[in-house]
């Protein structure tokens, strides 16, 4: 995309005008500034790794050239990702929300919300990795029989439990927006349920269950879900996008914790 437009026929002071005048010029310039802007987002992690490497572990950087090229990739990629969200996922989420609300079919809206949560979670690589690790932990803890077959079916059961409940969580969250219920009563009841279930669930499953909440929502799902919530709440009269549009992710995180605790108790 970065094709700095503008034919350099004009004199130097006119360069900025020439860039702006060209069809691609202004976006290219603003994109370049965005790439530079991402540096601010990356300074803390670069500083942490540099300080620990040089001052505390006292080791030189193994391959500085590769690290610098990698950082350039990170900056460019982050800027492109954010730009793409603004162009693609955010407007799409909002237009879907508007179309569903106009259609007025609660069934299809809830089905879409559920499918969004389920479909994007069940294939999530982080979930697959954590579920496999959890199956090993459960086999070692004596919770399930050891052996590849038992572990595989445990991991699969875990993944479907998490994905189904993430879908149910988002559907419940959308239903809440339509009804205008306050988010905190639902979430707090969820917390109370988690605490109560924690006393009854087997100890090996507790750590796994708590972590499952965090792995459900990927970097691509989060913006779409957010746009969906904000879109729905801005379509319904009397809803405030800030008050009602957010909160979907919270449901997608809490529901899997509950269902994995129950899954552990049923085993």
């Amino acid at each position: 995309m970065a094709t700095p437009g503008g034919k350099p026929k004009s004199k130097a002071p006119r360069f900025a005008d020439a860039v702006r005048g060209h069809a691609l010029g202004a976006p290219a310039l603003s994109f370049f500034l965005m790439v530079l802007g991402t540096l601010r987002d990356l300074v803390p992690i670069i500083a942490v790794i540099a300080v620990f490497q040089l001052a505390i572990l006292r080791q030189p950087f193994p391959d500085l050239g590769e690290i610098i090229i990698g950082l350039a990739f990170v900056m460019f990629g982050l800027a492109l990702f954010v730009k793409g969200l603004e162009m693609g996922l955010f407007p799409l989420g909002e237009s879907l929300a508007q179309d569903f609300t106009r259609k007025g079919s609660l069934f299809w809206l809830l089905l879409f919300s559920f499918a969004l949560g389920f479909g994007t979670t069940v294939a999530e690589p982080a979930l697959i990795a954590v579920a496999a690790a959890a199956a090993r932990a459960a086999a070692e803890g004596g919770m399930i029989a050891s052996g590849a077959e038992a572990e595989r079916s445990f991991a699969l059961g875990l993944r479907y439990t998490v994905a189904l409940s993430a879908g149910a969580g988002i559907a419940l969250g959308v239903f809440r927006i339509l009804k205008g219920w306050p988010v905190h009563w639902l979430i707090m009841s969820g917390y109370v349920a988690v605490v109560i279930l924690s006393f009854f669930a087997p100890e090996e499953i507790i750590g796994i269950a708590y972590d499952m909440g965090g792995v459900t929502t990927s970097t691509i799902t989060v913006p779409l879900v957010t746009a969906l919530g904000v879109g729905i709440s801005s379509m319904i009269r009397g809803r405030n996008p800030l008050l009602d549009g957010f909160g979907l992710i919270a449901f997608a995180c809490l529901a899997p914790i509950l269902s994995v605790l129950i899954f552990g108790m049923l085993l």
Binding site: I67, I69, G70, L71, A72, V74, G77, F81, K83
Partner: peptide, 14 residues
């Protein structure tokens, strides 16, 4: 493309 470049950069650099 953005997310891929971002991940490649992180995986190689940090």
């Amino acid at each position: 493309i953005g997310l891929s470049l971002f991940l490649i950069g992180l995986q190689s650099a940090l």
